[in-house]
């Protein structure tokens, strides 16, 4: 392999890692919400969007990128708590069908509220200049430090979650809840409070992911659904309720998706006209993660690291 193409591969690997970390941030919350509360929350992507919009608008108005982070966290967290109290709480005892539909309704509502208040045009935030200029990681490999920072932040969150889940009392309850919800309730734990904490935590992670991914992909209405479907794939592949699964599957799928998108059209160009190769390559690359999920589920119907029985 020529050194040039090696660098390209490394660069795309880093891009994949960054996307995977993003997916993990969303999937961690979603997998806990599903694993512990038994609720399919299609509106998780909306929290991602709310965080992105709130942070980006404030950062744009003040010119301070860092100010956007707490704003995104607060906005997504508050929205998450409101959604939990008003809607999700009524869905615990319902079947999956009602949950899918009610949270689908939430998606429509959130998208329209954003369209009404902000408009259809995407909004942007500039990355701080110190993070925008590529740095040389290896000889010839230049990479924007902003993406490195996202990867680092994501891995840090993963570590934090690991400690939270495995070393604290809340984490113990969360693990117990993911394994056997009814037993935890029977032991006298205030399960409602636990649900609220878990949902709030998921909302915070989603809001954070939304804001930091803003400068990389556009902040626009519908951004939530796009990433939501990929996130669901991560949750299901990783095993519902498993943080470890979300982490492994997130990074795996992020890398696979990015590599396919980057290199498949080029490979196909060898066997067909360029314009068709590009379209087909992107198409198959988009199918990639779904195909991978189908394969995993066929071999392990509960996912890679299924929690509980």
């Amino acid at each position: 392999m020529r050194p040039g193409s090696m660098i390209l591969v490394l660069e795309q690997l880093l891009n994949g890692l960054q996307y995977g970390v993003m997916l993990f941030l969303l999937a961690a919350g979603l997998t806990l919400i599903f694993g512990i509360m038994g609720v399919i929350n299609l509106a998780h992507g909306s929290l991602f969007m709310v965080g992105a919009y709130a942070g980006t608008l404030v950062a744009g108005a003040t010119g301070n990128f860092w100010l956007g982070i707490p704003v995104a966290l607060v906005a997504a967290g508050a929205t998450g708590l409101a959604v939990e109290a008003l809607v999700i709480r009524r869905l615990y005892a319902r079947d999956h069908l009602d949950q899918v539909l009610a949270t689908f309704g939430l998606i429509l509502i959130f998208n329209q509220i954003i369209t009404l208040t902000v408009g259809r045009q995407p909004v942007f935030v500039a990355i701080p200049e110190s993070l925008a200029a590529p740095v040389e990681l290896l000889p010839g490999l230049f990479y924007p430090p902003y993406r490195l920072l996202i990867i680092a932040a994501g891995l840090l969150v993963a570590l934090g979650l690991y400690l939270l889940i495995n070393r604290t009392r809340i984490g113990m309850l969360v693990r117990a809840g993911a394994t056997n919800r009814d037993m935890v309730r029977a032991l006298g734990v205030d399960i409602r409070l636990l649900y609220t904490v878990v949902f709030g935590l998921g909302a915070l992670l989603a809001g954070f992911a939304g804001y930091v991914s803003g400068p990389i992909s556009a902040v626009q209405v519908g951004m939530g659904e796009q990433i939501l479907l990929s996130t669901f794939v991560v949750v299901v592949v990783g095993g519902v309720g498993s943080i470890k699964g979300a982490c492994v599957a997130g990074i795996l799928l992020g890398v696979v998706d990015t590599m396919l998108r980057a290199f498949l059209p080029g490979l196909l160009r060898g066997v067909m006209p360029a314009s068709e190769a590009d379209a087909l390559g992107i198409g198959i690359a988009s199918m990639g993660i779904y195909l991978l999920m189908a394969l995993v589920l066929l071999i392990r119907p509960k996912g890679l690291f299924a929690a509980g029985g």
Binding site: L101, A102, F104, G105, L106, L108, I109, I113
Partner: peptide, 8 residues
Amino acid sequence: LWLGLILL
């Protein structure tokens, strides 16, 4: 928006 509210 209204469709979503009605659905809910």
